[in-house]
Write a protein that binds this DNA or RNA. Structure first.
Length: 732
RNA sequence: GCGCCCUUAGCUCAGUUGGUAGAGCAGCUCAUUUACACUGAGAAGGUCGGGGGUUCAAGUCCCUCAGGGCGCACCA
């Protein structure tokens, strides 16, 4: 054998290795090959894949394009799924998109207004829905292409949409079952009203922002015995009571007394009630009770059977027939009432207090609590078919050592805390895009069913459902439920193995899936919840349109390769923590792809004519030790993969391949390969091939493209049938 | 108010049963028809936010303080 100093270019290795690795040219081609091979579909996997491993892709909203956060999620999930597949699991990863009701409709309405100056009612329900569908379809197509560009090994034959026919049947079926069990009811109750979006929203869709308010202390009238304090004087025209703590010595003697009085141009009938909810220390220790426009007051009113007087309408305007406030916007009405109090000499004190403002997540509108007739999910009703447990009970019990575990663990407490504070879930929305409520009315009659009543004269409820209602069914609506035959064929995949998603939707989505699955199926929807954090920019700022700091993951993939994007996202961030990602980090992993590429070039050109001999045993002492070291590292990595510590494994493989294999082992091989000892040379050639082969297999879940491309040229022994790397076994 | 997280090299972060401090990037010195410049070698750089405690041993466990971030509930 000649000393290893050959002129460039070297002969007899595949020509592609003589150039730097080209992800842009390679990745789309490899993805096409995977699609042709069909192994994304578990039904097409070879015999050895038996034990199911199933994941649902958190469906991206059809509101636009994917961002770095979605890419992070896809990278994590694809790495988990590919690892499981190589481990011989029967892997099913279901892709889909989310209609995201309010978000999508708001987006299209914005465009409509900007481009045509029209509002939703100018178009009407049918035409607006047509526009939204067109927008959603377009958005869907680009999202699908983006998912593909990132290398996701999802089963496209099972792709779902939260608003398609099958999911609609699932929604109607779930609604009907809950309605029949009394878990869904229609009620006149105080709800969160978004005047900007003109719809109700759930408690979870409220975003509190810090601000300053003014706390006004005053009396309703000169001869009223108690002073009250409030930050919303304008609502006081809707007061029906003053609540004090039952043991408060200052006010005890007034409890149950009633007063008729004139306030800001309207008549009030105020009853004094004693209620434990009132804190004697705050303000004057007395609360003016406005049942129609405060959640707490509503509850006080319920306890004391007080009347409800709405004074604010859906446009956040005052409705009370008083010259002081009539037809004014709430903010103006507040000023008017304060002015009135001053002129009457009733205002005792004004002080600035910190106050948080409730705004709607999607529209930014200031949320106004209003009483309305809406549909709710009762979370406190005992369910006969579930041992008289309530939905709250089912949700709480699902997260336990033998049920669902959440990673990182600390989120289990966050989840339980949320359940403890959970109120009935308002599910009806006054928007057009979404699942129509499967309820029909004829006069005073109400009819709920999966299909419309056949006889004449019924009118379907105009409202649609909270988008999370359909998302809650996702783990099983994507597996065919409620179609018995289809679901039976997929029964093995439920509960799904792991749910990987962002911690920001633990309440919206994770909790709702647990609710739906435990109630409808009597089983948990998944065994493990892996929560990832927010992807921020290099400076740690939240990625947002206004900052213009969004990096398009697909642009990055085009520039540096999806493999590099995936590594850049995964490495350096444990579950539950936010991460900072910039272009430089991704670039670094592109260099790594090329490093591996050149390692391959060196190994192939140094081992010409040799193929991998799995039963090789004539190892030199050094080589035997090196093999053992790598095996130890891989065993550790396997353990960490099973514990979902992907960031550690990725880093470990990177460090080993670059700094052990390339920097040390390859360099040390040069003198050995040009030495006199045939035995040492034979051993070293086998070593180089063995290590390369193991590294490529181990790295595949993280960097699927470059590894699959290298794999094609790894010289397995001629007797071995080479399968695509995607279904090869992970080493160790 | 209740609760959670973060504070480790200039920057970004790893570091899970407690056992002599790690990586990437940046910077510094050197090498250069080399498998790879999308490179290599080397050196430098940290009292692991402050204080206290437990322990033979603490970045790691406990208490406390400070700064930053977040979630929930909102005192009207």
């Amino acid at each position: 054998m000649e000393p290893k100093k050959q002129p460039y270019p070297e002969p007899n290795i595949p020509a592609k290795f003589l150039k730097p690795y080209d992800p842009t040219g390679t990745e789309p081609r490899i993805y096409e090959e995977w699609l042709d091979q069909g192994y994304f579909n578990p039904d097409k996997l070879p015999e050895r894949h038996k034990e199911p491993f199933s994941v649902v892709l958190p469906p991206p909203n059809v509101t636009g394009i994917l961002h770095m956060g979605s890419a992070f999620m896809i990278a994590l999930e694809d790495t988990m799924v590919r690892y499981a597949r190589m481990r011989g699991k029967k892997t099913l990863w279901i892709p889909g998109t989310d209609h995201a009701a309010i978000a999508t409709q708001a987006k299209v309405e914005n465009i409509l207004y900007k481009e045509e100056g029209k509002r939703r009612h100018d178009l009407g329900r049918e035409e607006l829905l047509r526009r939204i569908d067109a927008f959603a379809n377009q958005s869907h197509d680009s999202i699908v292409n983006q998912i593909k560009a990132l290398g996701a090994s999802v089963d496209w034959s099972r792709e779902a949409f939260t608003l398609d026919e099958k999911r609609n049947l699932a929604v109607r079926t779930a609604f009907k079952r809950m309605y029949d069990d009394g878990l869904i009811y229609r009620g006149y109750r105080i709800v969160n009203w978004d005047p900007k979006g003109q719809t109700t929203i759930s408690d979870d869709e409220i975003v509190h922002t810090e601000g300053t308010g003014t706390l006004y202390t005053f009396k309703y009238s000169k001869d009223f015995p108690i002073s009250i304090a409030t930050t919303r004087p304008e609502t006081k025209v809707g007061d029906v009571a003053v609540a004090v703590h039952p043991d408060d010595a200052r006010y005890k003697q007034f409890i149950d007394k009633k007063y008729d009085l004139d306030f800001a141009g309207t008549k009030l009938h105020i009853q004094i009630v004693g209620d434990e909810a009132v804190s004697p220390e705050f303000g004057t220790g007395a609360v003016g009770v406005t049942p129609a426009h405060s959640h707490i007051d509503w509850e006080i009113a319920e306890r004391h059977k007080l009347p409800v007087i709405p004074v604010i309408n859906e446009y956040a305007k005052m409705t009370v027939d008083s010259p002081v406030v009539k037809d004014k916007k709430v903010a103006d009405a507040r000023a008017s009432v304060v002015e009135w109090l001053k002129t009457q000499g009733l205002l005792e004190k004004e002080e600035k207090v910190p106050q948080s403002l409730a705004t709607a997540e999607r529209t930014g509108g200031i949320v106004e609590p209003l009483p309305k007739l809406q549909w709710f999910v009762n979370v406190n009703k005992p369910i006969a078919s579930r041992d008289n447990k309530t939905l709250k009970d089912l949700m709480r019990e699902a997260v336990s050592p033998d049920g669902i575990s959440i990673l990182p663990e600390r989120f289990e407490r966050v989840y339980k805390n949320w359940i403890d504070n959970l109120r009935d879930w308002c599910i009806s929305r006054q928007i057009w895009y979404g699942h129509r409520i499967p309820v029909w009315y004829k006069g005073a009659e109400i009819y709920c069913d999966i299909v419309a009543p056949s006889d004449e004269g019924w009118k379907q409820d105009e409202d649609t459902l909270d988008t999370w209602f359909s998302s809650g069914l996702w783990t099983f609506s994507t597996l065919g439920w409620p179609n018995e035959k289809e679901f039976a064929a997929h029964r093995m995949y439920h509960p799904t193995t792991v749910l990987e998603t962002g911690y920001d939707i633990i309440f919206f989505w994770v909790a709702r899936m647990i609710l739906m699955s435990t109630y409808l199926l009597g089983e948990i929807p998944f065994k493990t919840v892996y929560l990832h954090g927010l992807v921020r920019d290099e400076k740690g700022q939240k990625i947002s349109k206004s900052l213009g700091n969004n990096i398009d993951p697909v642009d990055m993939a085009k520039k540096y390769g999806a493999d590099a994007v995936r590594m850049g996202l995964i490495i350096g961030t444990g579950p539950g923590n936010d991460s900072k990602v910039g272009e430089n980090k991704i670039k670094g992993y592109k260099n790594f792809s090329n490093k591996l590429w050149n390692i391959t070039r060196f190994v192939l050109s140094s081992t010409e004519g040799v193929s991998i001999d799995r039963s090789f045993s004539a190892w030199s002492a050094d080589d035997k030790k090196l093999i053992e070291e790598l095996d130890a590292l891989l065993r550790e990595a396997a353990k960490e993969m099973d514990e979902y510590k992907l960031h550690l494994v990725g880093e470990k493989l990177y460090a080993y391949i670059w700094h052990d294999f390339a920097d040390i082992i390859l360099e040390a091989s040069k003198p050995i390969l040009s030495s006199e000892s045939d035995a040492d040379k034979a051993s070293r050639k086998q070593l180089l091939l063995h290590i390369l082969e193991r590294c490529v297999r181990a790295l595949h879940p993280f960097m699927p493209f470059v590894t699959e491309e290298i794999w094609k040229d790894i010289p397995l022994s001629p007797a071995t049938l080479k399968k695509p790397l995607i279904i090869e076994a992970w080493p160790i």
